[in-house]
Design a protein around this nucleic acid. Structure first.
Lengths: 173, 173
DNA sequence: ATCAACTCTGCGATAAACGCAGGTATGCCG
DNA sequence: CGGCATACCTGCGTTTATCGCAGAGTTGAT
């Protein structure tokens, strides 16, 4: 099992059957969008000030935020840049694969050093971001964990040199 | 100016001269690493419990967190998946460019719809993540804002189909 | 030895979070 | 239509955390 849940809304379609009370079924109304938008800028904003700016009681806002978090629709975390912190060798890996895309994506997602996996259309089927301690570690990972996965046909690595921008406040549209 | 600062540690090398008190010069000792590690899992953890688990006074932890935030070494934000939220058409764009990599990266970083820019080695010089409302928006962006930038030679787009993993708790190594 | 800079602790005043009881609106069904 | 369940909100008293500051301990330079 991966050490962190992917963010997903509503219940996953593949989960089949009734999805009452199983996982997230949180409505994304205007108020929740406003909450998310504010917390995208400051994740530690107090429920009280959040309530004031939105125009709701503190308890209501608290309940909504809790629901968004519990439902896995949003998570509030500290983000850093491992590269400039001097802790990691990062790389994006583009993969072309044969077989079940979802299954392979899940298999790769289970690797702890992988922090980002996206299934996409275009020259690559999968884009995978790796966070390693050094080049040796990266080499190990590619050689032992990634390229050995059944169905992986092409594996192209883009080593990170510098992170130029990283934002999470894209709003809610 | 971009609407969000990139995360960077210490003062940027290009800033030249004395960097006393200008921007971040926060030491990344073991205590700060512990703080970051905890906040990577729960960004709203109280200073009090943080202090208890680390073994420092509440005030000291508060001061350190504030410093990490002010120095831009860490930010605490709500993260969501725009794709499963149904709000956005996301894509990664690989660019090959001629000329000053840093300058072009900054120019692209200034586009609001761009949430991630990384300078890298390999088949692409730049990897850029775009968050759009729909295909029309994406097309507009590529056509008017990205491909028009001087020095952009190749522009390959990977449209996101599904986000399979997204983690920020890679620890501090 | 002295001083400045830095980081920690301790603590009182203030503010926020928590939990719960109760109100209101909506929708379902006999 | 009344009765009832559900979902969401408000108000408020209690508990807990945050804030700001004064002072102590360390380190390093002069």
């Amino acid at each position: 099992m991966p050490n962190a849940e992917p963010i997903r809304a509503i219940a996953p379609p593949a989960a089949g059957g009734k999805n009452r009370g199983v996982t997230a079924d949180v409505a994304l109304d205007e108020i929740n969008k406003q909450i998310i938008e504010h917390l995208q800028r400051d994740g530690r904003m107090s429920y009280a000030t959040l309530a004031k700016t939105i125009g709701l009681s503190e308890a209501a806002v608290r309940q909504r935020v809790q629901r968004l978090l519990d439902g896995g629709l949003m998570q509030i975390v500290a983000v850093t840049d491992p590269l400039t912190l001097g802790f990691a060798r990062q790389a994006m890996v583009g993969l072309k694969v044969n077989g079940d895309l979802r299954a392979i994506a899940d298999e790769i997602a289970a690797i702890p050093e992988v922090d980002y996996v996206v299934i996409c259309a275009g020259g690559f089927d999968l884009l995978v971001e790796l966070v390693c301690t050094d080049d040796e570690h990266l080499l190990d990972l590619l050689n032992e964990k990634v390229r050995t996965i059944k169905g992986v046909a092409v594996c192209e690595t883009f080593m990170y040199l510098k992170l130029a921008k990283q934002t999470y406040a894209w709003g809610t549209r």
